[in-house]
Write a protein that binds this DNA or RNA. Structure first.
Lengths: 300, 300
DNA sequence: TTAATGTCTTTTATCGTGAAAAAACAGTTT
DNA sequence: AAACTGTTTTTTCACGATAAAAGACATTAA
C-alpha cells in the first residue's frame, strides 16, 4: 500500500454534491478547477460515475442519469489526508493525558501504532515542530515540551502583539479596500449567529477563525499571517476537549467580535485597540483555564 | 549508499583535536558527553585511532602513541550533514540569480542535481518553509516566493517588534540574573573587536548572532527565540554575498552594539528603546540595500 | 482557432529496507 | 556499589521503488 487515493475519493464526493446541486457537469478542465484537482483525477471520477450509472459519458457530453444516493459517497474517513490522520492520532495521545512534558517521542513507535510509514511520521513531526510543542534533539529523538501554561502564555503574548498591530493596520485601510465588504459579510454572519446562539453555538469556532484571519491579513506580513496557523491549531483542539460552558463562552465571544467590528468600522484607533484588547484578554483567559497543569514538567 | 557516517567523521576530527590538546583520552561515556555522540560512535572512533597508530587501546587504558598529523583528519566536506549540503546547494541556486519569484521548485530535479534522495530534499523543504521564502501547493510543487524587498521588510518588522520587547525584558531583569555576566563578557569581546576591527571585521557576524540571541532569550518566549533562526539564516547568507563596505558596516554595528549594551546596563527603558531602535534601523537599511530587486515578481 | 478530449510523461506521496547511530542490557573492573 | 567496558537491540536517517496525481503533448471537435 504505497499511496492512498484520498484525493480522488474526496474530489469524487465533492463531485457528487456538485452533481446533486446543478444536475449537470461542465468540461473536464472546468471541473478540475472547481474541485481543485488535476484532469487525471477528474477523468477517474467521471469514469466511476459512469460505471455506477450516475452519468452517461461520451466525450464532452455528460448526461446525468440519476441523483446520487447516500451509498454513492465514499466513507468520510477514506477521504482524509495521511497527515490529517497522523495529526489526529498524535493530538489524541498528546491530550489523552499521560503525556508529560519532557517525554520522548518515538517515530517508529508512532508509525507502527498509527499504521503508516516512518517517513510520513517524520515529515509530520518536522511540520508540527513549528507549533512549539515538540523539539528535536540533534541526531536523536524528539522531546515533548507539552501543552503547558507556559506554552499558552507565550502563544497569547505573540498573538496579542500581532493582532493589535493587524487590527490597527486594518482600521487604517482605505475606504475602497475590499476588506470592508468582507467585514460587512462577517458582521452579518455574526448577527445571525448571535440570534440563534442557543442552537448554533458550536458553529462559532469556524467563524472565529475566519474573522481573525481576515484581520491578520491586513498586516501584509507573512510571518503574522502564518502565525495564525499556530493559534488556529491550538484552538481547534482546544474546542474539542474543553466543552465546559461552551455556549456561554461563545455567546460572549460573538458579542465581543461585534464590538470589535464596530470599532474597526469607526476607524478610531483608540476604540479598535480597546475592543481588540478586551476580546484577546477573554480568549486568553478561556484558554488558560482549560489547561490542567496538574503534572509538573519532568526530565525524560 | 544509504546513510553517510558524517557524525562519526566529524566526532573523529574533534576527537583528534582533543587528543592533540590534552595528550590523553577519558573514559568512553565521558568522551561521548564531550563530543556529543553515543558510545557506539566513540568506540568506532577509538577503534580507528588504534588502527592508525594514534593510541594503544586496551579496555580502559588509552595510551597516546603519537600526535595527530594533518592527514589523520577526515576532509572537512565529509563531515557535513546532508541537510547542510542541501541547504547550501539550495541557497546557492536561490542567490545565484535566475531564481525569479513565482518559480516552481522541483523536488526530483533538486535531488538529482545535488545527488541525494528525494526524501531528504522533501524534509529539507518542509523545514525550510518556515523561513517564509517558499510555499507548498497542496499535492503539487513548491513555489519560490523569493528573497525580495517585501520579504526583507516583513522580516525586519517582526524582528523590531520582538527585539524591542526582548530588550525591555532584558533591562528589567534583576541584578542577580546571570545574563548580566554574559552581557559583560560580550561587552569585552566587542571592545576587543572594536580595537582590532581593521583586521578582524569578518568575525563580527558570529558575535552579532550571539549578542542578539542573548537579548531575545530574555523574552522567555519560544516563538521569539525561534524566530531568531529566521534572522540568523538570512544574515548568514547575506554576509556571504554582500561584501561591500563590510569593514565600515561592521565597525558601525560594533559601536551601536556597545551603545546598546550601555543602555541595557543603565536599565533606563527609554535609553534601551532608543539604542535598540537605532541599531535595528541601520541593520534594516543594510539588508535592504543589498537586495537587487531588478527583476519583478513573475507568475510561474 | 480556440477549447475540449485522448494519451503519454513527469512528479509527488508513501512504503519497505538497510546502514549509521543511539540506547539498553549484561558483564567486569576498581 | 559505582563506573566502566563488551554486546545486543532499537531507532534514526536516507535510499530506491511504486502507485497516485499532476502536468505536458497530441489530437479532435465546435
Amino acid at each position: 500500500m504505497s499511496k492512498s487515493n484520498n484525493v480522488y475519493k474526496d474530489a469524487y464526493n465533492r463531485g457528487l454534491r456538485l452533481l446533486d446541486e446543478t444536475k449537470s457537469l461542465p468540461s473536464e478542465p472546468e471541473l478540475g478547477a472547481l474541485l481543485g484537482v488535476s484532469r487525471t483525477t477528474i477523468r477517474s471520477i467521471l469514469a466511476r460515475m459512469e460505471e455506477t450509472g450516475l452519468i452517461a459519458w461520451n466525450k464532452r457530453s455528460k448526461m446525468v442519469l440519476r441523483v446520487p444516493r447516500a451509498d454513492d459517497f465514499f466513507p468520510e474517513d477514506e477521504t482524509d489526508t495521511l497527515s490529517q490522520i497522523i495529526e489526529r492520532s498524535f493530538m489524541r495521545r498528546l491530550l489523552a493525558g499521560g503525556a508529560e512534558p519532557g517525554m520522548q517521542i518515538n517515530e517508529l513507535e508512532l508509525a507502527r501504532e498509527i499504521g503508516v510509514g516512518t517517513t510520513s511520521v517524520r515529515e509530520f513531526l518536522i511540520r508540527f515542530s513549528r507549533f512549539g510543542l515538540i523539539e528535536k534533539r540533534r541526531n536523536s529523538h524528539w522531546v515533548l515540551k507539552g501543552f503547558t501554561r507556559a506554552f499558552a502564555l507565550e502563544l497569547t503574548e505573540i498573538r496579542e502583539m500581532f493582532e493589535l498591530r493587524s487590527a490597527a493596520a486594518f482600521a487604517a485601510l482605505p475606504e475602497g479596500s475590499p476588506v470592508w465588504a468582507d467585514l460587512d459579510l462577517l458582521e452579518d454572519e455574526h448577527r445571525l449567529l448571535a440570534r440563534e446562539i442557543a442552537t448554533r453555538f458550536n458553529e462559532f469556532s469556524e467563524l472565529d477563525e475566519r474573522f481573525h484571519r481576515l484581520i491578520h491579513r491586513a498586516s501584509h506580513n507573512r510571518f503574522i499571517v502564518d502565525f495564525y496557523d499556530v493559534i488556529a491549531m491550538i484552538f481547534h483542539y482546544h474546542y474539542q476537549w474543553n466543552k465546559a460552558q461552551e455556549r456561554e463562552r461563545n455567546e460572549v465571544a460573538v458579542a465581543e467580535h461585534l464590538a470589535y467590528i464596530a470599532a474597526l468600522k469607526s476607524r478610531d484607533l483608540g476604540k479598535v485597540d480597546a475592543a481588540c484588547r478586551k476580546h484577546l484578554k477573554s480568549a486568553r483567559h478561556t484558554l488558560l483555564t482549560s489547561i490542567p497543569e496538574a503534572q509538573q514538567p519532568q526530565r525524560g
